[in-house]
Structures are given as structure tokens and as C-alpha cells.
Nucleic acid binder design. Structure first.
Lengths: 349, 349
DNA sequence: CTGTTAGCGCCTTCAG
DNA sequence: CTGAAGGCGCTAACAG
């Protein structure tokens, strides 16, 4: 009475069910449903099969298919924390490209402790995905320190990495230079860069953009002009607090991320430093919120949608056996400076 | 020369490889590696097997396992857009619970057109997940309109839904009442609720909390006291603009989401309406950013981490065959009012 | 204690 | 144009 139960409650219809219903062999059903180009099927049988499949609500099982085809048609994306300003665009870009190519994109959040490596394991090593897009610095670090097994089809987003893994980066240097130039053009000379964490690739590139722009305008820069902090609001607050203690106090600051800038604005407010009257500010990265801050923030909008999209394109190439370069730069569009109201001429210049 | 290539480049080691290396049957390897409690294996063979597996870097293939076990040990989570303030907590909660139970959580962003249904299809119907947590109103609507096949193991987050699908909700009504009470306690009487989109369940519950709190304090409410808009910054801006045109102008506003509140603050600023001097404000939902706004925003912090976690717990029960109620309320902790500086006594009272 | 045997659901030669 | 047969990598009885 209980025996055979497992079979009895198999509710999903399989190829065999459709075959029975259509009175053909299941291999024929498989061909028809996949539109196998190598086989021509009689119009009548095809209709019969299609009808039966429809009637039974047949959907092919991805696991069985993956097992034999040795590919899952799904790509993973690792991001450090869902909810960051910049990731939504990256995810949309990667998702759109994936969909167009018949792939499924699944994303995993690596904010929990150890979850970066765990996700990597479950997704890649256990064969749940064909490839992994890695936008999580945390995991990138692990890989750089020697995790080498099974990292075949990975693409690193916006980090350069030792060890031959392909990566795709935006032109952070140019982006930051754009922002700094805006400050310089407004008349500022004493400008400080409130950058992200020290020794992180993106921080380095943005800091470089800062220095480059300064120097190319004939303004000397010293190491002290770059203040390192983290990437969130609280980091921005403390970082900016440092900046405000500097003497002479800079008249403008170029901030390494939008969240940091929001914290930095709060620090200014608390000290009674008005933006832009007493302090001009540009932020690296843009999001709808920038428009609604006080004052609306001048930002550098990086092509993050394109970053996601092109990362996926790269992955697709790799999966097709196309050789992909070890370092790719996101192709157009270039970063855009969104002028709002956080930049003004310096007061005592 | 090219023939047999497919086999040749099979780089992953299988059970058979380990079995060969350890000179035992592959079923034994399977047992040992799974720690099958029903079989006792000689210490020596076990060591041999473990050694071989280690040496060969064996990792079980998830697809093959899923195929036979008829379960994938992965749960999907659908969210409307990665990058919203509230989703990071939900994802963390769900992810933590999943991990503790040996499940993998994958999230899919349903912001693209049609991608909600597509994701649902690829994940659930094609058998890539054992269950789906749905926090995407978009998909909820589709389901409510009649998508019924294969929705066996779904849990709806923070939406009540017709049709018997289990859902878990927080006490939005209480949360909003908390915020409104704070306003009333500060002395406000003319208070407006800037709610989300009309006809959405969460909006309705928050609006109800508003009315309830008002009435319980003896303040009459009319339908006109609830202004409907959307859930993002721009919606908040336009919604608040409407509020500011009201006459008599309210002295306080209870806003239905954090993003909306940020837009609303901007609208006030533009009109020269100072917060909290001319207008008090509380927002539903909290995130680190609230602390850094101008002024720091008084918010109602909902237990979103718990929502995610308990949704996953519910899913787990369901997967274990435990009966789950059609409607669950998130258990403790209750919403917390985070007092910051956006509420003050009204001016002309 | 360990090996043998059947599949899971699907794809893919190879015959007919 | 269609059917038969083998196998993807793994698990789970059932024997020994």
C-alpha cells in the first residue's frame, strides 16, 4: 500500500509520458521539442507530439539535460552585498545578456562569513553553473591567494588579478579624472581624494585618476592628498571628518563611491561645512538617489550596465571556446559627468 | 585524432575515478562520501576512499545527484530589483537560514520585462530549485491572475495573496502605527500618509496602520489624508509636492518607504520647507543611509532579516512535509522606532 | 562490510 | 523519417 508510493507521486510529466501520449518513441519527442535541426520530422507526427506535450504541460528537466549535455545553461554572479547602489545595474546588464543568449543568471550574495567560498563551491565545483561572474572582492582575494581548482570559467568584474583569470574593468581612472577636472575647472586647487580601502585595485585606479588629473593641470599632489577609508556611509563620514581637520582645509573633495559621499556629506553638515559653498564635492558612481540629496550631488556615472553585459558577453565567448583576453576594458559609453549642485567656485581663491 | 575528444577532456573526477583509485566499488565510495548512516564501512577502506577522493579532488556533481534524489537542495529567491534598500536584509536572512540547513540560495532579479515569469519557469518548472521565495510583487500579480502550474513550493514574502499560496508578512500595520504615534506624541494633528502604490497589499496595510493610530488618538482621518504614489525617490518627490500644495498644509508626514522619504525630503528642500521645523517626517523602513541624511531620518526599522530567515524556515518545513499555514506573521522582534532628527513639535499648535 | 543492479530524465549515435 | 540502445554521474535497494 505504501510501496510504489515514490513512483505514484511523480507528478511531473517526462519525455516518456509525452511519447506514450503521442504514440511515438521518446527520442522522437526529444528531437521535436528541441527543434533538432539535423532531423526532419513528418508534419503529422510533429503536430501530434506538440499537442501531446502541450496537453500534458511538459517541461524538460534541467538536471537531466545538464547531466548529459554537460552544460547547465546557467551562469552565476557573485556580488558582495545585494543592496549596494552599483550592483543593480551590473545585474541587469548581465541578466539581459544572459537572457538574450538563452542563459539563466543566478546571483549569490557573499556578505555572510565564508559564504563567498561556499557559494563558489556549490555553484562551480558542484556543477550548478557553467561559469561564474565574480564581482565580489572578497572572493577575488581568496582566488588571488591560491584557490585554483575549478576556476576555469570565471570572469572577474572590475578588478585586475594576478594569475591569468580574465577580467573586465571600466576606466575608473578616466572616471575619477573627469570628476576631478570638474573641480579644477571650477577653480579649486586644494583638492583631496577620499578613496576607498587601501590596496584595493579599484581604489588604486581611482586614486591614480585623481593624481593624473591634478598633475596634468599643473597641481602638485602628495601621498597625503589621498585619504583611504572604506566604501560605505560610515567610512565616508569618518574619512571626511579627517579631511575637515586638515589644515589648510581643502576646498573640494573627490569621493570614491556614492555611499561614501553620502557619509561625507553628513560629516560636512555636522561640522557646519556647507556644500558647495564651503566644500565642493564630486562622487564616483551615480544612482537615482544622487538627484535627491542635499544638495543634489555631482557624480560620475560609470557604465555599470555595460560592465555587467559585457562581462556576460565575455563569459559567453569563453564558453564557446573563443579565446578571451586576460584583460578587457568596457567598451563605450564612457563615464558621464552628471553636473548637479555640489560643485561651486572656491571661496577664498 | 579529434574523435574521442569529448571523453578525453572530461576533467572532472567522478565516483568511478575515486573507486578505481581506491580499488573499491563506486557504491561504497558513494556511501562513505555521503556518510550514509545505514552502512558501516571498515576503517581501512574508508581511509583509502577518503584519501583517494582527496587526492583526486573529487566533488559530487549536483545535477546527477538532483536527478536521482529528486531534490536540488537549492532554493530560489525572486526580488524585483537588486539594489533596493530593503532586500539586502531579506537576502541575508534567507541565505543564513538556507546555509544552516544545507541549502543553497540563489537569487534572481525580476526587473527586466518578462523576466519574472521567465525566471520562475527556469527555476521552478525546469527543476533547478526545490522551492521559490517570492518577494517580487510583479510575479505575485501574475500568480494571482492565474499562473497555477508548478507553484507547489512557493512562499510569498510580505504580500497576502488569493489562492492558497502560503505567505509570510511582517506587521506593517503596527510598524506604520508606531511611526504615526511618534508624530502624534510630538504634538502633530494634521498628519498625512504618503503611501506607496494604490491597491498594493503592503500599501494597504501601512495605510491602515496610519488610520488606526490616528483614530485611536481621537484624530479624524479622511481618504484624502492618504496620498498614493510609488516606492522610489521620484515618486516620493512628486507625492510630497502634492502634500505641500495641500491647504491647510499638514505639519507632519508618514512616508511608506525609505526611498520615497528621500524623494520627499528633496521636495521639501526645494520648496524651502525645513525638516523638522516646518515639517516632521517618519519613514517606514530603515537602512544605514537614514543616519546620514539631512536631517537624519526617524524611521521604523522592520525585521526584514527575520522576514527572509523565517520565509526560508517556512519553505524548509514545507519541503519536509510539514503543514504550513496559509498566512504567517513574522515572529519577534517587533518593528523598532529609530528616533533621529526629522521629528519636532509642530510650529503653530 | 561491500559489490551488483537498476534506474533518475534526457540526449545522441546508429540502425532501419 | 523514426525507433532502439547506451550512457551522463549518482543513489538506493538488494544481495552476498
Amino acid at each position: 500500500m505504501v510501496a510504489g508510493n515514490a513512483k505514484a507521486l511523480r507528478l511531473v510529466t517526462t519525455l516518456a509520458d509525452v511519447a506514450r501520449e503521442a504514440d511515438v518513441d521518446l527520442s522522437t519527442v526529444s528531437r521535436v521539442l528541441r527543434n533538432d535541426p539535423r532531423t526532419r520530422v513528418a508534419e503529422r507526427t510533429r503536430d501530434r507530439i506538440l499537442g501531446a506535450a502541450e496537453r500534458l504541460g511538459y517541461v524538460a528537466n534541467a538536471n537531466a539535460r545538464s547531466l548529459v549535455r554537460r552544460q547547465t545553461m546557467t551562469i552565476g554572479l557573485l556580488i558582495p552585498t545585494i543592496g549596494g547602489f552599483i550592483y543593480s545595474d551590473v545585474v541587469r546588464g548581465a541578466g539581459d545578456s544572459a537572457r538574450e543568449r538563452g542563459y539563466l543568471l543566478v546571483v549569490a550574495d557573499t556578505s555572510g562569513t565564508g559564504s563567498a567560498e561556499e557559494s563558489f563551491h556549490s555553484l562551480v565545483r558542484e556543477g550548478r553553473v557553467d561559469g561564474l561572474l565574480i564581482a565580489s572582492g572578497q572572493l577575488t582575494d581568496v582566488i588571488e591567494r591560491g584557490l585554483t581548482s575549478g576556476i576555469g570559467n570565471c570572469v572577474i568584474l572590475n578588478r585586475q588579478i594576478k594569475g591569468g583569470l580574465p577580467s573586465i574593468i571600466e576606466d575608473d581612472e578616466l572616471g575619477m579624472a573627469l570628476g576631478v577636472t570638474e573641480l579644477i575647472d571650477a577653480g579649486h586647487r586644494r583638492i583631496v581624494c577620499l578613496a576607498g580601502p587601501r590596496n584595493v585595485d579599484t581604489t588604486r585606479r581611482r586614486a591614480k585618476g585623481f593624481s593624473r588629473s591634478m598633475r596634468s593641470h599643473g597641481i602638485p599632489v602628495s601621498a597625503a592628498d589621498v585619504i583611504y577609508s572604506g566604501f560605505d556611509e560610515a567610512d565616508g563620514f569618518s574619512g571626511m571628518s579627517q579631511v575637515l581637520r586638515l589644515s589648510p582645509r581643502p576646498s573640494a573633495v573627490a569621493v570614491g563611491s556614492l555611499a561614501t559621499a553620502i557619509g561625507a556629506m553628513a560629516a560636512c553638515r555636522e561640522r557646519g561645512v556647507r556644500i558647495p559653498e564651503d566644500m565642493s564635492m564630486v562622487a564616483f558612481h551615480d544612482a537615482p538617489i544622487a538627484e535627491f540629496l542635499s544638495p543634489p550631488l555631482t557624480t560620475v556615472a560609470m557604465p555599470l550596465y555595460e560592465l555587467g553585459r559585457q562581462a556576460m558577453d565575455l563569459m559567453h565567448d569563453r564558453l564557446q571556446g573563443v579565446e578571451v583576453p586576460q584583460l578587457t576594458r568596457v567598451q563605450s559609453p564612457p563615464p558621464i559627468l552628471r553636473r548637479r549642485r555640489s560643485v561651486a567656485a572656491p571661496r577664498h581663491d
